[in-house]
Design a protein around this nucleic acid. Structure first.
Lengths: 201, 201
DNA sequence: CCAATTTGGTAGCGCTCGCTCCCATACGGT
DNA sequence: ACCGTATGGGAGCGAGCGCTACCAAATTGG
């Protein structure tokens, strides 16, 4: 019934995500959004209620695409944990086919820009963080069970360290730091997991 | 000659730093600043030129106070490196006498909010980052020379890992993460430096 | 005491902000 | 064909933005 839309809602959310990602919440105006998404104010507000709600949709979209892709890439489990972790972290800092540089992580940017003041945003960023930690935990547990990591490895501690390192890497990518130095940090983080256990007799 | 000021410039910069720190650049208006610093627009603009210049002053002030205090606390060198690193990192995440929680690090917040677009800001954040890395390098070198760390420790790599971890910790503090988990990450990072060498014969 | 000079206070500039209203337009259902 | 309904377009709302102009108040040097 009635006139159909001339735009794709998901496409619009994707564009909005890109803008918010690059510029942050406060520095992105609804006119900027309208231009980028090819939406008039009336369509934008009818579809997405307001700027804040659209931002939450963007965070949702980011979790459903970028974050999800990151999780499944880490947990692909077709190679040793250390390799998987290394390639995953290198991918996170925008090495290979990653999009434009200097964007960092949308979730990290949002968490630092808005802090804990906005409860709905906080829940979203927290859920994204928890997802990453779970993926790390799963990868490490798998690696330990496959005998690639020390049997006595404190997985909780390793998860916290790697997760914290990843956040730092995302900040540094946003800050434009050299990929070489980030690689050094990544390799050091992986080495921190301890030596590969000797083959059992 | 002429009428003296009724306000302390340094005090004003301190207040401005606090506001920018908590809210970020874009979310802080010059009226907010005027209220907080007890400055009328005319005094504010005559003294600090404009909002952007005041922001650079705030970054300067932060480096000269918070960052400097952090550096000297780490390099106090009246205790073993590991203890120093641990207490320093705990202090960074706002444990003991730190100010209000949830502020994170002004430099990290700025780097993620503004990225690399603003060249003057980028130079400031980069300088702050380099200062922290130098402090870490110095602390680690001292520890290794005192025999508290493995002689073969790759200091470059350790600096990159610890520095990245610190940035991650600052993000997590801003995001309101539990101090317990941050402590777990801190301890894991320090353990990554390797075992204490045995006493030479 | 007075001129010179810089301050603090206020009104308000032009502009952009997030957002709303109105309406012609374009489709679906019957 | 025609009515009901949701759409795209655009003007424009009140509010706040960063910033400036103007002026009385306050202090110093002569």
């Amino acid at each position: 019934m009635a006139r159909p839309r001339q735009f794709d809602e998901t496409e619009a959310v994707t564009s909005a995500t890109g803008l918010f990602w690059r510029r942050g919440y406060h520095a992105t105006s609804v006119r900027d959004l309208g231009d980028e998404l090819k939406l008039t104010p009336s369509s934008l507000y009818r579809t997405f209620t307001d700027k804040h709600t659209l931002f939450l949709r963007a965070l949702d979209h980011y979790r459903a695409t970028e974050s999800a892709e990151a999780r499944q890439q880490l947990n692909a489990a077709d190679r040793p944990v250390r390799e998987a972790l290394r390639e995953w972290m290198l991918w996170l800092v925008g090495g290979p086919a990653g999009g434009e540089p200097g964007r960092g992580c949308f979730v990290v940017n949002t968490a630092t820009e808005l802090g804990t003041a906005d409860e709905k945003v906080r829940r979203q960023t927290e859920a994204a963080f928890e997802g990453t930690r779970q993926a790390l935990r799963s990868a490490l547990a798998g690696g330990r069970d496959r005998g690639e990591l020390p049997a006595g490895l404190d997985i909780d501690a390793a998860v916290e360290l790697l997760f914290t390192t990843v956040l730092g890497l995302r900040v540094r990518e946003r800050a434009g730091h050299d990929i070489e130095r980030l690689t050094t940090a990544i390799d050091a983080a992986i080495r921190a997991l301890g030596p590969a256990p000797a083959e059992p007799a």
